[in-house]
Design a protein around this nucleic acid. Structure first.
Length: 418
RNA sequence: GGGGGAGUGUCCCGAGCGGCAAAGGGGGCGGACUGUAAAUCCGCUGGCUAUGCCUUCGUAGGUUCGAGUCCUACCUCCCCCA
């Protein structure tokens, strides 16, 4: 790890955010001399960001924290094209309406990590649809296209792998890198942006932007990429039973989010504390020194800190309490995720299978519920379900006024009669 | 334009003499063991009002008692020739 002099690069480096930097010495000097403006692009292919996007968001956060100005670039325009990097197939083309909806849904998350405004260090939200949608094709070819060499573009990994594997690469996708490069130039002109950050897979795209900026404007631009984060057992981050680990509380409850981090593998705890919390390096070192069973304390801290960033302190504390009551004290935790059911329906009797699948959504179908009963994976009020024909009724409501359903040891739901 | 090959369980890869809800992996879920970890072992992995019924093998037809498997057309992809 080289010794950066600017706080910005030093913090990113010591926390493990840096994979590659272009001309690190010059960037370092600039960061020390004044405010740098840098951006990261986010595409709008889904209705919420997931933990995979958390790393870039944290980079922007630290950027602002260390005195610089972050730009969040929403890919309203580029999402219409689709990034071919790392994809073995063309992406589904989304409708403009869908992109617009996704974009609106995603924006909110950034408020939790960045301070937006008009001040010199306030974060800026940009959308490349603002300039890409109105491009004139011929003008664009003459002004921008002339700076791109097909020979060189063909050598880029994202293109090369597709060609080597003889997979279709549409002209549409082929243009993605040009548009992304152009974004950098546009942001430089509009906001004086000098730095583009992103995942390591974006290195080539970012360098294209730097090249284009040099040729079109004679500007000196910089690239900074973060490593690809996988768990120590090699899996990509952000996948669980229920699917992606969304940052939106409507798609994944704060409790489930907390649980995701609580279940971090031992070998990842320290790294994740540095990347996904804002605890000081000293605090992290202390937590990372814990061994054996004690490392669970570090995991709890990781979970609460990470949850607090996304969902707020209160939600994190509630999740922690619910987890402690559920796992350590074996009592009912009212803060577990819950669904309501009409009391009248409950009085009529509710089959266990339907309760787990249709009501609680813990399993995908009645058949799945049936299988779980066979495997001993379902519990009602902490008692294993042995009869798939069991009927839940008012008598199953505990003194806390709920029925607790569990799938395995870790996933719990409360049914509340109303 | 001509010749050849391929598309399989909506997570992925991949076997499949005309009797197939379809081998085997990976992944995932559950169980055991643990520390709500990893590793390991075991089970499960299309749906339903369930000893049966329904929907699945690129799409649409056809042959057959019966088709993923044979025939025809179409779509998509790949290879060779031009």
């Amino acid at each position: 790890m080289s010794a950066y002099k600017s706080e910005f690069l030093r913090v990113l480096a010591e926390r493990g955010f840096i994979h590659q930097v272009s001309e690190p010495d010059q960037l370092d000097a600039r960061a020390r001399a004044g405010v740098i403006t840098g951006y990261i692009g986010f595409d709008c292919t889904a209705a919420s960001l997931h933990v995979g996007s958390l790393l870039p968001i944290m980079m922007l956060h630290w950027m602002q924290r260390t005195g610089h100005r972050p730009i969040v670039l929403m890919g309203g325009g580029t999402t219409r094209v689709g990034d071919p990097s790392g994809k073995d197939e063309s992406r589904r083309i989304l409708t403009d309406a869908a992109i617009g909806e996704n974009l609106r849904a995603i924006r909110g998350i950034f408020d939790k990590f960045l301070t937006f405004g008009d001040g010199p260090r306030d974060a800026v939200m940009a959308n490349n649809a603002d300039w890409l949608n109105s491009l004139n094709y011929i003008d664009f070819l003459r002004d921008v296209g002339r700076h791109f060499s097909i020979n060189r573009m063909l050598a880029f990994d994202s293109v090369k792998t597709r060609l080597e594997r003889q997979q279709e690469l549409s002209f549409l996708e082929f243009n993605y890198m040009i548009l992304q490069a152009y974004d950098f130039v546009e942001l430089h002109e509009r906001h004086g942006c000098h730095l583009q950050m992103g995942g390591s897979d974006q290195w080539g795209n970012i360098i294209n932007g730097i090249e284009l900026g040099r040729r079109m404007l004679g500007a000196q631009l910089f690239a900074l990429t973060s490593p690809l984060i996988t768990t120590s057992s090699g899996a990509k981050m952000g996948k669980t039973a229920a699917g992606a680990v969304w940052l939106d509380a409507d798609l994944l409850s704060p409790y489930a989010y907390w649980q995701y981090w609580r279940n971090t593998e031992d070998g990842d705890v320290e790294r994740f504390l540095r990347l996904f919390t804002v605890l000081s390096i000293d605090d992290i070192a202390r937590l990372a020194a814990l061994r054996g069973q004690e490392i669970n304390e570090a995991k709890k801290t990781l979970a609460s800190e990470a949850t607090a960033l996304v969902h707020g302190r209160d939600a994190a504390a509630a999740a922690e309490t619910a987890a402690r009551q559920t796992f350590e004290e074996g009592v009912f935790a009212r803060a577990l995720p819950s669904v309501e059911i009409a009391l009248a329906d409950l009085e009529k009797g509710l089959g266990v299978l339907a309760a787990f699948s249709e009501k609680a959504g813990l399993v995908a179908s009645n058949s799945e519920a049936r299988r779980q009963v066979k495997a001993g994976g379902l519990k009602v009020n902490d008692t294993t379900v042995t009869d798939e024909k069991m009927i839940l009724g008012p008598r199953h409501v505990t003194q806390d006024g709920v029925i607790k359903l569990s799938l395995g040891r870790k996933r719990h739901m409360l049914i509340k009669p109303v």
